[in-house]
Amino acid sequence: MLLEVKKLKTQFFSDKGVNTAVNGIDFHIEKGKTLCIVGESGSGKSMTSLSIMGLVEEPGRVTEGEIVFEGEDLLKLNESTMRNIRGKDIAMIFQEPMTSLNPSYTVGYQIDEVLRLHQKELNKTQRKQRVIELFEEVGIPLAADKYNEYPFKLSGGQRQRVMIAMAMACEPKLLIADEPTTALDVTIQAQVLELMNELKAKKGTSILFITHDLGVVAQMADEVVVMYKGNVVEQASVKELFDNPRHPYTKALLNSIPRPGKVKRKSRLDTVDENVNYLDFPKEIR
């Protein structure tokens, strides 16, 4: 088992009280597998990923649970040790590449920085060659020329590919992707998903994929965790989830997907009923 999350609770503290963003969730990821976390905005998906990475900022903090990576609880490590793991063994692709890349530095320099930190055996020439190889691997055209480009000169799809190249620079054992295709058009989205599946197949990397798009889940996942208001309400293999969803919230999510030919023209799509508290129903773990 590569990663085990046990009873994870992440809370935010203020003068007005305590807000629980992640409420005692459990899941695990096997080596070479993809786990998708799905749910509406605000369900706790991104906060789960930030908790794993050790990037929860004040006034928030992980208050309970364990995050066991290769047999070691990440919550018990000091910041220096965690920094060595972050980017090397566990890497993350953030949701919006334009805000994740530093506009003051070239994209080549920013990936070179990752290699300087985690692969100290490489000299400057070797690092540059490695960056260009990474650009080629993720399908960036004219890779050598792009090394000295600034982020604003690249298209949205190319910036996202740079983020994937940065995450894959040290060939991490676990890649966390937080809605990496949200800002992309459909064609580029398909290319990015195909690229991630190829990298997974070649490198054996495990993927924690966070999304609200069930179509992406069907394409990417081996296992699926459904989150609602910080809680896991259903967990199953991707085939079981789509063939036989059991929890009412999962059924509501699936029913909201438009289906060509099955919805009458001008009729309204089904939506998740905001008047129903889906936590009142029992969890479904399979």
Rank of each mutant, 00 (worst) to 15 (best):
residue 118 H to S: 04
residue 248 P to R: 04
residue 128 K to V: 02
residue 113 E to K: 13
residue 64 E to N: 13
residue 217 V to F: 05
residue 164 I to E: 00
residue 166 M to H: 05
residue 139 G to K: 08
residue 254 L to W: 09
residue 40 E to W: 14
residue 240 E to G: 03
residue 271 T to N: 08
residue 70 E to R: 12
residue 164 I to K: 07
residue 46 S to L: 02
residue 125 T to E: 13
residue 54 G to K: 00
residue 67 I to C: 04
residue 139 G to V: 12
residue 74 L to M: 09
residue 150 Y to G: 07
residue 175 L to F: 12
residue 51 S to W: 13
residue 12 F to D: 02
residue 117 L to W: 05
residue 113 E to S: 03
residue 24 G to M: 04
residue 12 F to R: 09
residue 167 A to M: 02
residue 237 S to T: 15
residue 131 V to L: 00
residue 65 G to T: 07
residue 30 E to M: 06
residue 24 G to F: 10
residue 136 E to W: 05
residue 185 D to I: 06
residue 69 F to I: 02
residue 40 E to S: 01
residue 75 L to I: 03
residue 199 L to I: 09
residue 239 K to D: 14
residue 59 P to M: 11
residue 55 L to R: 05
residue 67 I to H: 09
residue 88 K to C: 00
residue 103 P to C: 07
residue 136 E to L: 00
residue 196 M to A: 11
residue 223 E to K: 09
residue 148 N to C: 02
residue 226 V to N: 03
residue 258 P to L: 15
residue 145 D to G: 01
residue 35 L to P: 08
residue 27 F to Y: 08
residue 17 G to S: 14
residue 69 F to K: 06
residue 184 L to K: 12
residue 193 L to I: 14
residue 251 K to Y: 06
residue 63 T to D: 09
residue 276 V to Q: 02
residue 252 A to E: 01
residue 42 G to W: 06
residue 239 K to V: 00
residue 225 V to Q: 00
residue 166 M to V: 05
residue 48 T to S: 11
residue 145 D to W: 06
residue 218 A to R: 11
residue 133 E to Q: 15
residue 204 G to N: 12
residue 141 P to R: 01
residue 101 L to P: 05
residue 128 K to W: 03
residue 133 E to R: 05
residue 180 P to D: 08
residue 47 M to R: 06
residue 121 E to D: 15
residue 29 I to C: 04
residue 203 K to W: 08
residue 216 V to Q: 07
residue 133 E to L: 09
residue 181 T to G: 14
residue 72 E to S: 15
residue 241 L to P: 03
residue 62 V to T: 10
residue 218 A to Y: 08
residue 82 M to Q: 04
residue 138 V to E: 06
residue 1 M to A: 14
residue 25 I to S: 11
residue 83 R to S: 10
residue 286 R to D: 09
residue 21 A to N: 03
residue 2 L to V: 10
residue 152 F to I: 01
residue 171 E to Q: 15
residue 182 T to A: 11
residue 71 G to D: 02
residue 53 M to P: 03
residue 260 P to Y: 14
residue 44 G to S: 04
residue 32 G to Y: 15
residue 195 L to C: 10
residue 115 L to F: 12
residue 266 K to C: 12
